[in-house]
Amino acid sequence: MKLSIIDAARCVGCQSCMFACVRRDNVAGIASSCIFIKSRGGISTGFRVITCHACENPPCARVCPTNALELRKGGGVKLIPEKCIGCGHCKEACIIGAVRWNPEQNKPSICIHCGYCVKYCPHGVLEMKK
């Protein structure tokens, strides 16, 4: 299963999904969110919903010098935090901006497609898909 966007035009920009993602780790805030909502260019223009596309041949993993990003079954990657040196190459490699950076831990925030955020989207923007 992977996280997918039904219709970004329905997004009101509340960022409840971002807060949900962080809450999964038993803290509050937004510093480690793996999903990201930002306006297209000022809030009157609507929102961009940025999620990991679970690439089958993910560029983020290919550029990782320490193999800290392992291929995940069904697409995307898993982060092995002990191997990560915080170089940030993965972030640069993901041209849709789905590899977010956690400044507190100096490591990438990698979506594991758990679907927790989907439950907190009040306007039906997100879904889990096979």
Partner: peptide, 25 residues
Amino acid sequence: GENTVKLSDPKGFKKLYNKLYEAAV
């Protein structure tokens, strides 16, 4: 900025969060 806030009762927090969120939507 981006930060996280630590909680003294994460379990209680999540439970109450769900209650408030559901009440809101």
